[in-house]
Design a protein around this nucleic acid. Structure first.
Lengths: 209, 209
DNA sequence: GGATGTTGTTACCGATCGGTAACAATGCTT
DNA sequence: AAGCATTGTTACCGATCGGTAACAACATCC
């Protein structure tokens, strides 16, 4: 008798093997896009591996959990954010007031591009309300540093009350991020961010109390 | 022979029957708290019925889907929001500038209370990024009306550029909401919101261009 | 006292969640 | 060629997701 098991054996399997570091890079690319666009909570690991073009086990052999994935995602976004920030300042070296103004101009410009989905730190903080969740530490650290940089700029710009200007700038930045999601996309409110910031900066530096 | 089916029959079932409208009220209370505190996406219908103290079928006999639940949740939050808003204005009848200032003062006060979790419209917009999702329509409507009210106040306050002041106020409000979630709870930035708003209002109304 | 309509309960549906065991196929080293 | 570590594949795991069928227990009206 012939067992049916060994009848068809010459099919081409052709499974491609991806080095670990390549797979890792593809995964990081996938989560950077998916977590940002659809939200980390809404995107499952199956969607991640599908988009990354790797196997699920390849993912879990390099990242211990989805929480770890989110932390890597945030780390990448943090690097990108400070690159943006430093690029804004680099446009006006030695001119803190123009630097601060440029930060708002560049944020508003990015926020109007299609596909913009707000600040990734804001989004993930809203998606994970538990303040003990590991992602919240990254968010807090980012905002803490942002406030420090704003205070530094406000001080260098010789504002009457540097902390007050830093507070106002921080609130406007958070507001600009969020308004992109709550108001209709392309709403003139986003485009008005630099003007609002300009008025605030002028009032904080020019007129004497 | 004795069938085992009818041996124990005198156990007290004691199942309470809740009128439909009572169950509905309990469900609305439950989602108002759970959806706000933990996020509508993170809270399942099982958690809702458990907290409401009703059966799952009682829920689905009155609400056709979880999406419908979220719309009811948002409707309740919208009513509450405009009650807050009108209450702020009622403190200074006929004085638009003080009214606008009061809006910020009251928002900042609420935002510093324990359990505050930001603007429910902002949160649900972040949780459901798809602009075609039914909840997004409610969010857009709320913000649209808010902008209209702010513009009305700015006009009455005789700002040089009412639209510019309304834009600034809207951005500050969104920023205040969001900052409660991204910066540490109780962060001085939240308490500074009224001062920042005061400076903005003063600059928009007082000084001549 | 039925008959009827509403409510509670249980048990289930298929789908998806994050995560893993086991093993086949591959590449690299010697 | 042999041995070994890495990678791919499949098939699962228990839990939870939103949602429903079927039927038992109740209240009410005639």
């Amino acid at each position: 008798m012939s067992t049916t098991k060994d009848v068809v054996k010459d099919e081409v399997k052709s499974r491609k093997v991806t080095p670990a570091q390549d797979a890792q890079a593809q995964i990081l690319d996938a989560i950077d896009e998916l977590f940002y666009r659809e939200g980390a909570r809404a995107v499952g690991v199956d969607a991640v591996v599908k988009r990354a073009g790797v196997n699920k086990m390849s993912l879990y052999r390099q990242f211990e959990s989805k929480d770890a994935l989110m932390l890597h995602y945030l780390a990448g976004r943090e690097t990108r954010f400070w690159n943006y920030f430093d690029a804004s300042l680099a446009k006006h070296p030695g001119k803190p007031r123009e630097q601060l103004q440029q930060v708002f101009a560049d944020i508003a410009e990015r926020a109007q591009k299609p596909g913009y989905r707000g600040c990734p730190f804001v989004n993930i903080a809203v998606e994970f309300p538990d303040p003990e969740h590991p992602v919240r530490g990254v968010v807090a650290e980012n905002k803490k540093q942002l406030m420090a940089r704003l205070l530094e700029l406000a001080t260098q710009a010789r504002a009457h009350d540097p902390q007050a200007l830093a507070n106002g700038a921080a609130l406007l930045i958070e507001g600009g991020y969020t308004a992109t999601q709550t108001y209709a996309p392309g709403h003139p409110l986003i485009a008005a961010l630099p003007q609002v910031a300009a008025a605030m900066i002028a009032a904080a530096c020019d007129e004497m109390g």
